[in-house]
């Protein structure tokens, strides 16, 4: 009997994994600013995360210094340096901060990277024109958030 129970339990877990592909930006569950589960349902790739720190809609080093990325010029000073950030925050907290920093830090200047509504005069990227009205894409995809988080957890001192 134990054996059978175990089997069906395993089956349930498989089913959960299969359907929980991606958490929508409007459905992220925050607990004290932290997000427990992977947004994409997949583990992140730290090397892709390191790239996002320096490019596109991520561009984290526009505001943060990261010694491990010292080869990249022009690191900003608006936010705290991210060296040792994994000693200060758990993975779930880091995921929460990157997803929507304004929940952890009230009124933070840090952009909300996984958010699609509630903007004032939303534009069409950097054109200065109004957003066309189609589906709003978050600044980073669920998987890109996971990649960045996977990179941040490597920043230990």
């Amino acid at each position: 009997m134990y054996f059978r129970l175990g089997l069906s339990f395993a089956a349930v877990i498989c089913a959960t994994v299969a359907v929980s592909e991606e958490v929508k930006p409007t459905e992220v569950l925050f607990v004290d600013g932290a997000v427990e589960a992977s947004l994409s349902g997949q583990p992140g790739d730290p090397s892709s995360g390191a790239d996002i720190m320096n490019k596109g809609a991520g561009n984290c080093i526009a505001c943060h210094q990261v010694s491990a990325l010292a080869h990249l010029p022009f690191q900003g000073e608006i936010g705290p340096p991210l060296d040792g950030v994994a000693d200060r925050w758990s993975e779930a907290e880091l995921r929460g901060i990157v997803t929507n920093a304004k929940i952890m830090f009230e009124d933070s200047m840090m952009p909300s990277f996984y958010k699609t509504e509630g903007f004032i005069r939303l534009g069409d990227e950097y054109t200065g024109k109004a957003h066309g009205g189609g589906e709003v894409q978050p600044l980073l995809t669920a998987q890109q958030i996971e990649d960045v988080v996977a990179y941040l957890v490597t920043l230990k001192e």
Binding site: A62, E77, P111
Partner: peptide, 25 residues
């Protein structure tokens, strides 16, 4: 003081709260 756009930043975010610091280059 209105935080515009998808980055939700106001003039004050950059020019009042953070003048004197570097934003990228």
């Amino acid at each position: 003081y209105t935080r515009f756009g998808q980055l939700e930043m106001s003039c004050a975010n950059c020019h009042e709260d953070n003048y004197g610091t570097m934003i990228r280059a």
